[in-house]
Design a protein around this nucleic acid. Structure first.
Lengths: 234, 234
DNA sequence: TTCTTGTCACCTAGGTGTTAATAT
DNA sequence: ATATTAACACCTAGGTGACAAGAA
């Protein structure tokens, strides 16, 4: 069995509609897909891998307010809702990402959290860095696969029974080249250590954010400027 | 067969008497031990590992000039020669370092340079980070081992014929907690990118250092202050 | 109008020798 | 007297969203 790590964080993103940036060079996911694994044969070899399947066959586009409803001379923050823009673009090459420690013994996989932090998403159809290729403005479901390395000579025959797939619906996301929902942006800034430079913390919030058992997630979000009443960043 | 990478750099260090820093937390080697491998069975599994054996059973100490020969009020740079200080200290636990990609197919090992840049040296006898434990002020010979993963059930019986050891004498070094030979320090600063902060380059040396085929090694060394005529760093 | 790209300042994470203080 | 330790400034390497410019 498999347990998703940071489930609370995934839930928080999922509630807003998770977005993941895709770039030509490849961008990591945040949150990172991490799992705890139970019930493997400690002595057997396993391969761990991920792939991404379309959630539907739709293309999305952002909702923009009519000009009359925008602030004069101001900046319209992206909305939080999506419109269906038509049928999905042609499917991207269905690549998979093997966890770099594969293959390894069950004991090795189970003794610590398995993290897919080397996995990168790209929108470059011609990518030759082995990254996962996705269509921007489409929704995807990450999947996690455990493959038992069968020592038998004719192992191909048993392929069907030698792997198990795990799907966590809370890890669904929309691939984007730029964030569409400002709340997603704020939650990323609040929770991703590499985005710390964009936090505008009140210093006195720090002890509160760091008390044990509390997730330091929504602090920046809660303090974020009101999208309606404030002008663009200067 | 195995070919040592950066042999010219290793030779340059070896000529001066290579020193490697050991710390409690563990310190990487510089130069890094890297090899190109030829003639493996592309489909077979191999483990790659390193260990370190004492070159002799001696303990060394640095040579210090008598007080009368030092600069008045000045700082005596360490000499470049070593004195035998007695018999070796008790041997350290004979640990080995498996290359983290082990095991892997021959094809995988051969298609690129194999780098042991995760290997760290420590002088902490109680280290529990899996680092290589060495005695400071002792000389060591790194060794590189290739182990064929025998698929036969009774593979233990063939252990003797299933591995091959490679020794490059130019990679010998003295373990130290602080550099003894100032020329070694200068060559490290000149050749290790992480020590760039200690270079005092004339800016016009840059193009010369970067012309193709030339190693940018000795530039800082050649320009280093004369140990006899200059005072300590301020 | 909507989406994508490239550059940037600002971070995390961790590898350097230096230095002063401490240990032996 | 000699060797070791720990804190430090200064790097490499690379992950962030912001922003302006470009593309469709």
């Amino acid at each position: 069995s498999v347990q998703l790590e940071m489930k609370a964080l995934w839930d928080e993103f999922n509630q807003l509609g998770t977005e993941m940036i895709v770039t030509k060079a490849g961008r990591r996911m945040f949150p990172t897909f991490q799992v705890k694994i139970f019930g493997m044969d400690p002595m057997a070899d396993y391969m761990l891998l991920m792939d991404f399947v379309p959630v539907d066959d739709k293309r999305y586009r952002q909702v923009i307010l009519p000009t009359s409803q925008r602030l004069a001379g101001g900046y319209a923050f992206h909305s939080s809702s999506w419109l269906v823009a038509g049928k999905a673009d042609p499917a991207t090459p269905g690549r998979v990402h093997y966890h770099p420690d594969s293959p390894a013994k069950g004991a090795q996989w189970m003794k610590q959290i398995v993290s897919f932090d080397k996995l990168k998403l790209t929108n470059n159809l011609l990518d030759d860095n082995g990254h996962i290729i996705l269509n921007s403005m489409h929704r995807y479901q990450p999947r996690f696969h455990v493959v038992y390395v069968d020592p038998r000579k004719d192992s191909e025959k048993y392929a069907e029974e030698n792997f198990k797939t795990f799907v966590f619906e809370e890890t669904r996301f929309t691939a984007v080249t730029a964030y569409q929902n400002h709340r997603i942006t704020q939650l990323k800034i609040a929770s991703n250590p590499f985005a710390k430079g964009f936090r505008d913390c009140d210093p006195e919030d720090w002890p509160r954010n760091h008390r044990p058992g509390a997730l330091p997630l929504m602090s920046a979000f809660a303090r974020s400027r009101n999208p309606v009443s404030s002008p663009a960043h200067q």
